[in-house]
Simulated assay, not measured.
Amino acid sequence: MKIRTIAFDADDTLWHNERFFRLTQDKFAALLADHAAPESLSQTLLAAERRNLGRYGYGIKGFVLSMIETAIEVTDARVPAEVISQILDAGKEMLAHPIELLPHAEEAVQSLSDTHRILLITKGDLLDQERKLAQSGLGDLFHGVEIVSEKTAVTYGRIFADCPGGAESALMAGNSMKSDVVPVIEAGAHGVYVPHGQVWELEKAEAPRDNPRFFEIKNLGVLPALLEEIEAA
C-alpha cells in the first residue's frame, strides 16, 4: 500500500490549543466563584457548548458565547456587566495568543512535504484558523488547506476523492479520536492517533483498535517510520 496523501489536524496536533481553553475556563470559574462550584460550573458550561455546537460551531467565539450563556444561567440572569466584559476580554486574549508549535510538528510536515501530498484539515472559526496557520509558519508546506464545519466520513470522503489514489491511499494524523481517526477510517483511509495531554470532553471516542487501518504513535516524530511500515506491509 502506497500512501500518497497525508493530512494533518491543526489544533493540539501541530500547535497548542486546548490548554488556552483550560486556562480561560479557570479564569471563568474564578469570576463566578460566588455563584457556582468549579465542577458544577464546568458541567453547566459543557452542556451549553454541546447545545450550541449546531449554532456557533467550533472555536473561541462559540466558547465565549457559551460562557456568557452559562454565566447568565448560574446567576439567575443577574450576572454583572463587569463579569461579561471580563469574559469578552478573555476571549479576545485567546484570539490574540501567539502560536506555539508542538514538538516534532514542523519537522514531520517538512520531511514529508517533498514525497507526499500534504493537507491540513481542521475545523473551527475560519478567521481564527487562518490566523493560526499564518502565524505557524507552516502554511507554505501544505498542498491544500480545508477548514470545515464538521469532520465526518462524508467530509473526508469528499476531500480524499480529489487526491491521488483516493481514500485508500490517504492517511490522517490527529489528536482527536472522534474527529481525526474514527470518521477517517469510516471513509476508507488510514487514521493515526497522536495523543495529546488535554482533550476536550466532546472530542472523546472509543478507539477502533481492531481495525487494520488504525494506528497510534506517541508523537509526530514517529510518523515517517510508521509510513514506511504501512507501505512495506
Rank of each mutant, 00 (worst) to 15 (best):
M1K: 12
M1C: 06
R4A: 12
I6N: 01
I6C: 01
A7D: 04
D9E: 07
D9R: 08
A10I: 10
A10E: 01
D11S: 11
D12F: 01
D12N: 13
D12I: 05
L14N: 05
R19Y: 00
F21M: 02
R22F: 03
L23E: 15
K27N: 12
F28E: 10
A30V: 04
L32S: 07
L32C: 08
P38C: 03
P38F: 01
P38Q: 04
E49S: 00
R51C: 05
N52D: 13
G54W: 02
G54V: 13
R55A: 13
Y56A: 05
Y56T: 11
G57Y: 06
F63Y: 14
F63E: 01
V64R: 02
V64Q: 06
V64I: 15
L65Q: 14
L65M: 12
I68A: 12
E69R: 03
T70E: 07
V74L: 05
T75W: 06
T75E: 01
D76P: 00
A77N: 14
R78A: 14
I84E: 04
I84A: 04
D89F: 02
G91I: 03
K92A: 14
M94Y: 02
A96R: 11
A96D: 11
P98V: 11
P98A: 08
I99T: 15
I99M: 10
I99R: 10
E100I: 13
L102K: 08
H104I: 01
V109P: 00
S111C: 10
S113Y: 01
D114R: 13
L119V: 06
L120C: 08
L120P: 01
T122K: 11
L127H: 10
L127E: 13
Q129A: 09
Q129D: 08
E130W: 11
A134S: 14
A134C: 11
Q135S: 12
S136F: 05
G137E: 08
G139E: 15
G139K: 15
G139P: 02
L141F: 14
H143T: 03
V145G: 09
V145T: 15
I147N: 10
V148K: 12
K151S: 09
A153G: 10
A153N: 09
A153T: 12
Y156S: 09
Y156V: 04
G157E: 11
R158H: 14
C163G: 03
A167Q: 12
S169I: 05
A170Y: 06
L171D: 06
L171R: 03
N175M: 09
N175E: 09
M177Y: 04
K178A: 13
V181F: 02
P183T: 09
V184F: 07
V184E: 12
H190R: 13
H196V: 06
G197T: 10
E203C: 10
K204S: 08
K204N: 00
A207Y: 00
P208W: 03
N211Q: 12
R213G: 04
E216N: 04
I217A: 04
K218E: 14
N219Q: 07
L226C: 03
E228T: 11
E231D: 03
